[in-house]
Design a protein around this nucleic acid. Structure first.
Lengths: 249, 249
DNA sequence: CAGTGGTCTAGACCACGCC
DNA sequence: GCGTGGTCTAGACCACTGG
């Protein structure tokens, strides 16, 4: 039931051709977006999905493999296919690229020191694709690695998508788990822009460094499963003893 | 001829199992390493390779797809499969992540201001996996974007793998094309470590900025097709008007 | 039109995890 | 032993490119 075949039975129309597995993938991602398949779910076997969708197992497999490559699913031979959870150890470092110079990877602890609801500024309206006069939450926090405060960051969220965020106390360290569990929003992808900047007086106070110390400023935009921008985050980081790591291939 | 079947005909031995397509991929990568398939080559069709290797077309396809995903090959429907060339526009930005704040991507021009052959220091011996007392080439150059000098960088290469490098004059802007054409070395992958640092007096002179200006320091190790470290590069970059861009997924 | 990679199918068998 | 995903095969057909 619910067959996919948008192509079959039509006269030849090479224009706008779209592979079946791609259509299947879109349908399955929709189930993640609308919450039909929540994080952690053990999904039906390939054979069952193939039967349900009226396509071959190979086609379902190609869609599932692509979603697994995007870290939306986790496949485990002998067990099954599962919806990724933001608490998974693997996921935690997917978006956190700061590493100790000696190679140890640790997630930093966080302390929120300010939070408020306010009108979005022009850049924020633009980046988050919000309507004029939209309001946002602003969360300011510091983060510690190895007992030392090395990051000061500001998170900006559209108030419309994060109702009653002020009732969440405390704001957890892993905010992506919060977005997922409380608001059903999964951060699937992010873009970061890195610059070297000087510590302001405020930075210097929180990071316990002289004003003017070089900091790495990381501006991140996080995108949801549907491709819309969900979170804007600006982090300013000390990088003595730590570095930002990138793999190019 | 030249069949692959390392598995077939053996008694069951689940330990050390290795998929056929993976063995095929290894054999094909070897042809890139040893120069049998040089950059730009139009390689045999999937059917021909399948026949040659004694496997099915689907197995060859999986190996070729994996190599294309690693940017070692370029596949074009209707035309064929080609060995990637470092001159390709796509390849040029694979390893260059600095972008104008307005989104324009340009490759910088380069000016070499110093070059010498010397003994490698301890870190270099370690990173490049060189024997004790190995010698290296050191190339110092500046790079310009939009007519402004924004990068000062040092490239360190094992002298043993880059014979007579001093006879190359001038050192071209795209050194990866030089490595490929003159030495048959393809940079297939790189790891970068980013830090925020202060401009030294020397940096300040070349970059025309005050000493102490925050710079982004990028330490890159480039790896060849065989997985060995080929190049060490340290770039120090101004980031006003430019940023380093990263996509996380 | 011929040749190539891309899609889709159907089925067999294998490695793995769990009971 | 059973169910899962993973591999491998064989073959049909489609979309794209170039001559």
């Amino acid at each position: 039931m619910n067959k996919v075949r948008a192509q079959s039975g039509n006269a030849a129309r090479p224009l706008g051709f779209r592979p079946l597995y791609s259509q299947v993938q879109e349908m399955l991602v929709e189930r993640l977006i609308d919450g039909t398949w929540p994080p952690g779910l053990h999904l039906p076997s390939e054979q069952q999905l193939a039967a349900e969708l009226g396509v071959s197992q190979g086609t379902v497999r190609k869609a599932l493999d692509a979603m697994a490559a995007d870290n939306l699913l986790v496949r485990r031979q002998g067990r099954g296919t599962f919806v990724s959870e933001p608490e998974d150890g693997r996921m935690l470092f997917q978006f956190f690229k700061l590493v100790s110079d000696d190679g140890r990877r640790n997630l930093p602890d966080s302390s929120v020191f300010a939070m408020k609801r306010r009108a979005a500024d022009r850049d924020e309206l633009d980046i988050l694709a919000l309507p004029a006069k939209a309001r946002v939450w602003q969360i300011d926090r510091t983060r510690e690695l190895d007992g030392r405060t090395v990051i000061i960051e500001r998170i900006v969220l559209p108030a419309a998508r994060f109702a009653n965020l002020n009732q969440v106390d405390p704001i957890p360290n892993n905010v992506y788990a919060l977005y997922s569990q409380r608001y059903g929003l999964t951060i699937a992808r992010a873009e970061e822009k890195l610059k070297a900047v000087s510590a302001t007086a405020a930075d210097a106070k929180y990071l316990d460094c002289p004003p003017g110390t070089p900091l790495m400023e990381i501006s991140r935009v996080g995108f949801g499963l549907d491709g819309t921008a969900v979170e804007l985050r600006i982090s300013r980081c000390l990088t003595d003893g730590f570095h930002y790591t990138v793999s190019l291939k």
